[in-house]
Amino acid sequence: MAEDDAAADQEQQQAPQVQMRVLAQFIRDLSFENVMAQKGASGQIEPDINVQVSVDARRRQVEHQYDVTLKLNITNKAKGMDDVLFLMELDYYGIFHVEGIPPEQLQPFLLIECPRLLFPYVRRIVSDITSDGGFPPLNLDQIDFVQIYRQRLAHVQAQQKDQKADA
């Protein structure tokens, strides 16, 4: 048994320890337009909300640091009509220090785990802005960042396949 414990300890020492810290997070760009108030609409209107999410990550010039941007485009229309009630665009930015991730796992880590850490703050901002903009607070549902990553991979693979077909 002592040999098994020693082997396990040696494996732990050899495996790089994953380190991740959020160095900064902030609103990089925010736009909210209350179209309904500008048009002078009144009465009871049932909303139809569309939320589009994208995530991007880039290496910074400093070693082991990455920029991760979580972008939301939210359109709220009157249900059954083309009348826009409000438009909101939000780019929320995080700077992360990440070490110990194998290179082949770095991109999924940056595009899945980092946005998961940013999302609670984005949710609060969206809720506050919509409320301050004259609407009931919009409480976003959880976002499946794994699914967004898979869609991104599928899109990139389709583009590569098209490029090979054109060549």
Rank of each mutant, 00 (worst) to 15 (best):
V126Y: 04
R124S: 12
Q142T: 15
T130H: 10
P136M: 10
D144H: 03
G134H: 05
L117R: 10
I125P: 02
I112N: 00
F145H: 00
F135G: 01
V122W: 06
Q142L: 15
R123D: 15
D141W: 11
P137F: 06
Q142E: 15
F119N: 07
I112V: 03
V126R: 06
P120F: 06
I129H: 02
P136T: 11
F119G: 07
Q142G: 14
L140A: 14
R116W: 11
N139T: 13
T130W: 08
L140H: 05
S127P: 15
L117T: 14
R116L: 12
Q142W: 15
D144Q: 08
D132F: 13
R123S: 07
T130S: 12
I112H: 09
L138C: 04
I129Y: 10
R123F: 02
N139S: 11
D141Q: 13
Q142D: 15
P137S: 04
F135Y: 01
I125M: 05
P120L: 08
L118G: 12
L117S: 14
S127C: 14
D144E: 09
I125T: 05
L140R: 10
D128H: 03
P115S: 08
I125N: 03
P120T: 01
I143C: 07
F145V: 01
D141V: 11
S127D: 15
L138Y: 09
I129K: 02
D144L: 01
L140D: 04
E113I: 11
C114Q: 11
D132A: 11
D144K: 05
E113A: 06
N139R: 10
D144S: 02
F145C: 01
P120Q: 00
F135T: 03
